[in-house]
Design a protein around this nucleic acid. Structure first.
Ligand SMILES: [Mn+2]
Ligand SMILES: [Mn+2]
Ligand SMILES: [Mn+2]
Ligand SMILES: [Mn+2]
Lengths: 219, 219
DNA sequence: TTTATTTTTTAGGTTTGTCTAAATTTTTAT
DNA sequence: ATAAAAATTTAGACAAACCTAAAAAATAAA
């Protein structure tokens, strides 16, 4: 089956929203796609007819097995292109999302296979998010947010939750990126803020909100 | 200005048809784009309003200076991606056109600039066609068809006129590609067919029609 | 130079994906 | 439990990019 660019964007957004809440609402999807709830309802009907959704009027919706597979394929293309843009073309990690948003819709199987091979089968994209394989299998990455890391444990940054330009700007400012090694030196119970120490950098304090969005694994 | 995928396909096709006949007809464009003459007329009106065309009802049309610049930019993107697909991803030269046909519509200036840099500013695409630079300037390639080459002159293949899969298949069969060195050993005046000799290969005979579609430069 | 043929345009539809405004259903608050 | 608010769907339009069939213009043939 082949899908339009619009259909693919809907499918992918539903997939992402499902990571947080099992069943997705019309409003949240409209908000995610910067469109109107009425437009979402229209598209839901089409996706249901194409047998990608479980959807009951007024009750919310979710991807079925088929829809999930389609979504994972789009996510795979998106993340492979992001990896390409950063590692081969030299883009900054906060500049690649919009471009990958277009590249992901080129659906030649052969293209993605050869791209994957050219990139040497990367496991994660530039934001630390796992890249599904051809069959839709996602490498599991054991990680916790800095908000949950015990003091004095050495950890390495594996991914970023909130990937807004504002967040990425902040991380760049602190010189924190995927693969950065650091240690939690102190945690303030007053507001949940955390003091961290990156090798060769002065210690700095990040808010609980930021801490919750930086994921790390124990060394 | 930004253009839809459909508009870009029309603009590029007009550009290509203009290489052969100065002014383009509705039917020829409909044929090129595999669409109906009525659809072409519809789009012509739109492109005229956007000030890309010189167009007089029933009299044919052509790109104006602005339209030409837009076309050259699309051609540039198309050929850079073709070059990428062949040299980096390892595609065969007869498999890249359809994919580049989609990639060419991703219009991020930054993307194309970085891609060009990554590819090390290639002058020609995998079919030997020149790649316009950022300003739309096309490198001139002095070349003649094999049909015009004098006997016994050593020449090198620079590009291919007809780029249909059938033609590319035939060239692959003869082991002829861009950069292949060869010599015309004989020309038969009866039907214009030509005997050619490629280094380390047995001499072979190609029809006048094929000869007219292989372009070469003198060594 | 009429007539016939071909080319091009116009008129009127269709599909996809969007919108606003109104109606309906669900949820929350009193 | 009922009223108010919020979420969702329906109804009806619209633009883009197609289409077919018919009309109009240009070209070729008799
Ligand atoms: Mn997208
Ligand atoms: Mn990413
Ligand atoms: Mn195209
Ligand atoms: Mn080419």
């Amino acid at each position: 089956m082949n899908f339009s660019i619009s259909e693919e964007n809907y499918i992918k957004s539903i997939y992402h929203l499902q990571q947080q809440t099992d069943t997705v609402t019309t409003n949240s999807l409209a908000n995610e796609l910067q469109t109107r709830p009425a437009s979402v309802t229209d598209m839901l009907k089409k996706l249901q007819v194409k047998n990608l959704l479980e959807y009951e009027k007024y009750k919310g919706f979710r991807l079925n097995a088929t829809g999930n597979k389609v979504a994972l394929n789009i996510v795979r293309r998106h993340r492979l292109w992001e990896y390409f843009l950063v590692t081969k073309l030299g883009f900054e990690w906060d500049k690649v999302h919009a471009i990958a948003e277009e590249l992901e819709h080129i659906s030649s199987k052969d293209l993605i296979q050869k791209l994957d091979n050219f990139l040497n089968y990367p496991q994660t994209d530039p934001h630390g998010d796992p890249i599904p394989d051809v069959h839709g299998k996602i490498p599991v990455i054991r990680q916790v947010s800095i908000a949950e890391v015990p003091v004095k444990k050495n950890v390495t940054v594996s991914s970023v939750g909130n990937q807004s330009p504002e967040m990425l700007e902040l991380l760049d400012h602190y010189h924190i990126g995927i693969g950065t090694s650091l240690k939690v030196t102190m945690r303030f119970s007053f507001d949940g803020s955390v003091e961290i120490k990156v090798l060769k950098q002065a210690a700095c304090i990040i808010s609980e909100q930021v801490a919750k969005n930086i994921f790390v694994y124990h060394d």
